[in-house]
Design a protein around this nucleic acid. Structure first.
Lengths: 139, 139
DNA sequence: TGAAATCGGAACGAATCAGTCTGATTTAGG
DNA sequence: CCTAAATCAGACTGATTCGTTCCGATTTCA
């Protein structure tokens, strides 16, 4: 029930990338220095994000990263799935058979729980995470 | 974003225990044989569930387990938290400091996501998971 | 009193994850 | 056209956590 660190870093990195969205390309090293994360780790995160189609990479000198889609069209669920694979609380949701595959009374209920969680994450766009909220409100 | 196997087993075990709720005490070995899970694993799960106060254990010969509360008052979130600890997607929600503790723009948003997920799990009572649905409906 | 059955904690092994590094590819400039 | 720099992409190592199993302490019934 805990997100992996990679996924956490991916969210932070995507937020940083979203800020540079209008500016064009940004290098992974720049994102690392801005976010304070170790550079090699950011590189790894960026690789996964690019493979998933969330980021577009331009190689060669003067290259860099840029969001493949507008920030509003990228949800938290997309980022998590890009790094951690499909959101599935249990293996049986994925089709893998568990030890109690036969007459498992809980099995039919997992998809409902699963979609509920995924829906909660899908409703949070990257724009909402990237915006620095005025935390002036009284807690 | 995946539930640990222990938590999965805990849910199955609790469902089995809920069926025996009216019958009184049930041994961990019986729950294991009924669910098809390895007996030692069930024992470990039962220990955690008892420590969390979800199950009540009676030691000695003829002892066994029984639900500490009515099944309707036990939610999926309770079971997950009993096995995996507090539901916290990231370490910073728990108070632990992450590498980017300073000016982490994402940090203020995590509690919202976290509570959303926890709420989704808290709304599913054990009774709903224990009942065997008439899966006659066309998928 | 004896014995059985239970929970509780500790130890071992495996798997996944985090982090680091080196190599291949691509572009810009001379 | 070639050189050189900068980039991403994949593979490797070490560590932490999870899963599983086993054994001991405690408690109750007969």
């Amino acid at each position: 029930m805990r997100l992996s660190n990679l996924a956490d870093y991916a969210v932070v990195t995507m937020c940083q990338a979203a800020r540079h969205c209008g500016g064009g390309k940004v290098s992974a090293a720049e994102l690392a220095s801005e976010s304070g994360l170790p550079a090699p780790t950011v590189q790894k995160v960026v690789s996964k994000l690019t493979s998933a189609g969330l980021l577009r990479s331009s190689r060669g000198a003067g290259g860099g990263l840029q969001l493949a889609r507008p920030a509003a069209a990228i949800s938290l669920a997309d980022i998590v799935e890009a790094v951690e694979g499909p959101i599935a609380l249990t293996a049986c949701v994925e089709g893998e058979d568990c030890a109690v595959h036969e007459k498992c009374s809980v099995k039919p209920h997992w998809p409902i729980v699963n979609s509920a969680l995924r829906g909660a994450l899908a409703e949070i766009p990257l724009t909402r995470l990237a915006q620095i909220p005025q935390v002036k409100e009284v807690a």
